Simulated assay, not measured.
Amino acid sequence: MKVFITILALAVASASAFDEKVFIKDLPKSSKIEGRVTNGYAAPEGKAPYTVGLGFSGGWWCGGSIIAHDWVLTAEHCIGDAASVTVYFGATWRTNAQFTHTVGNSNFIKHNNADIALIRIPHVDFWHMVNKVELPSYNDRYNNYNEWWAVACGWGGTYDGSPLPDWLQCADLQIVHNEECGWTYGSVGDNIICTRTVDGKSICGGDSGGPLVTHDGNKLVGVSNFVSSNGCQSGAPAGFQRVTYHLDWIRDHTGISY
Rank of each mutant, 00 (worst) to 15 (best):
V221T: 08
N39A: 08
A9W: 00
P211C: 04
D19K: 05
Y41E: 14
S30F: 05
A97L: 04
L8Y: 13
A152S: 07
E147T: 12
Q233A: 06
D81S: 09
E134Y: 15
R36H: 09
V22Y: 04
W71I: 03
S137L: 10
R251S: 14
D125Q: 12
E20F: 09
I67E: 03
F23S: 09
W167I: 11
G156F: 00
H123A: 11
S229G: 14
S187R: 12
P122R: 03
S234L: 08
D190H: 10
H123Q: 11
G157N: 02
S187E: 07
V198I: 12
I24W: 06
L212P: 01
P237N: 14
D252M: 15
S257P: 08
G55N: 13
G156D: 01
V87S: 07
T100N: 08
H253P: 00
G40Q: 02
A150M: 08
G35I: 01
E34M: 09
V124H: 02
W61K: 00
E34F: 13
R196C: 06
I33Q: 06
I192L: 10
E147Y: 15
N39V: 03
V213L: 09
D166T: 07
A236C: 13
K29G: 11
D115I: 01
C232I: 05
K2F: 11
N131P: 02
G156W: 00
D115H: 07
D190N: 14
V85C: 14
P163Q: 07
I121P: 01
V22P: 00
W148R: 12
C153L: 04
C232E: 00
I109L: 05
W93F: 15
V124Y: 06
A97C: 10
L173S: 03
G186E: 03
C78G: 13
I66D: 06
F89C: 01
A48F: 11
V12E: 10
Q98C: 06
A97Q: 12
S228T: 05
V37M: 03
N230K: 15
A17V: 01
P237D: 13
K47N: 09
Y88S: 07
S224E: 15
Q233P: 08
L73E: 02
A236T: 08
G217R: 11
I192G: 00
P237F: 06
G200C: 14
S31F: 12
I193M: 13
R141F: 10
D248E: 13
V22T: 07
K25Y: 01
A75D: 13
T102S: 07
G210S: 05
I256E: 07
P211F: 06
H77M: 05
V103T: 04
I175M: 11
W249R: 12
L135P: 04
F23H: 06
Y145T: 03
E134F: 05
K201T: 08
R251D: 12
S106K: 12
N146T: 12
Y159H: 15
S16N: 08
K25C: 06
L173I: 07
S84K: 05
Q174I: 03
C232V: 12
I24D: 03
G80I: 06
N230V: 01
I175C: 05
I119N: 00
T102D: 09
V243D: 06
K132A: 10
K21L: 14
L164K: 02
K47T: 13
K201D: 10
T244H: 02
A43C: 15
T244Y: 01
